[in-house]
Amino acid sequence: MSRSSRSSRAAIGFLAPFGVLFALFFVAPIGYAVYQSLFTVERSGPLGLGGAHTVFAGLSNYSRALADAQFTASLGRVLLFGVVQVPVMIIGATLLALLLESASARGIRFFRTAFFLPYGVPGVVASILWGFLYVPGISPIVSLAHGAGWQVDFLSSGTVLWSIANIATWQFTGYNMLVLIAQLKSVPGDLYEAATIDGANAWQVVWHIKLPMLRPALVLTTVFTIIGTLQLFSEPLVLKPLTGNINGSYTPNLNAYTEAFQNNNYNLAAAEAVLLALVACVLSFGFLKIVGRREKP
């Protein structure tokens, strides 16, 4: 009896410091955002000069956000972005991991470090860097292309989304590759050996052994990438001054930021933040559900 009470007191002691901060800075903000999203500021008098007071608004901030064509367009934009960029990056990371772990690879340390380096470049700095490489006048890529008679414009309305996708891919492919390599290394080497002895060729080893082994790591990296995609913010914010094709509501996050700090409509911004968290939950849990179902035959 005294043992178990000592044990549970110790457990509380170890969990409490993290628990308190988690409650304050993770749970409470969500609760506060939900609370804020249910109110609205009403201004009275002519031109709203008679003073402002907060009134309960029910779900009207949510219906306003969802009826706002700019906000729904921004959601659609990041979804389109994700449908293309997430597979491209995960497949790219898988390819690089398999190549580096194949028996034919040379200079592994150099290549692995080179691929991983961009992860150490902060998102805004990566955006500034690529911004310079996109802008005509500074960009050597644009001037090389023009020299070859190819009129590229990385910042046109049709291309700018994919220019942003390139920044995200550049930054995170190497990181995802490293997670996948770690998973590959956890596979006992005799397994490959046995398969090769049994006459499996390189493709069969990849297809029947390595890829199924990579599955958990692939699920993990995909979920984190989906969450990261929905949060897209610093890239469009940094590129915004360089092109007229990015506005203040280009992504859901940018939209919420503009709503809060330029239009001072914190309540609507809170509703948008809650909607974004909901979409993130639905997509990541949905993805986990789908792969979880396929796991059981």
């Binding site: 969990l15 628990g19 988690f22 800075f25 993770f26 749970v27 409470a28 903000p29 969500i30 506060y32 955002a33 804020q36 979920v223 969450i227 929905l230 949060q231 913010f233 996050n253 919420a256 930021y257 809060a260 914190y266 911004a269 809170a270 933040a273 809650v274 974004l276 968290a277 993130a280 939950c281 990541s284 849990f285």
Partner: peptide
């Protein structure tokens, strides 16, 4: 249950927290 709440925390986009954190 505690562990699952923490796991849910992993899946919450950090930027969705920043705005309400500022208000708090």
């Amino acid at each position: 249950a505690v562990f699952n709440v923490v796991l849910a925390g992993v899946l919450i986009p950090g930027t969705a927290l920043a705005l309400p954190l500022y208000l708090m």
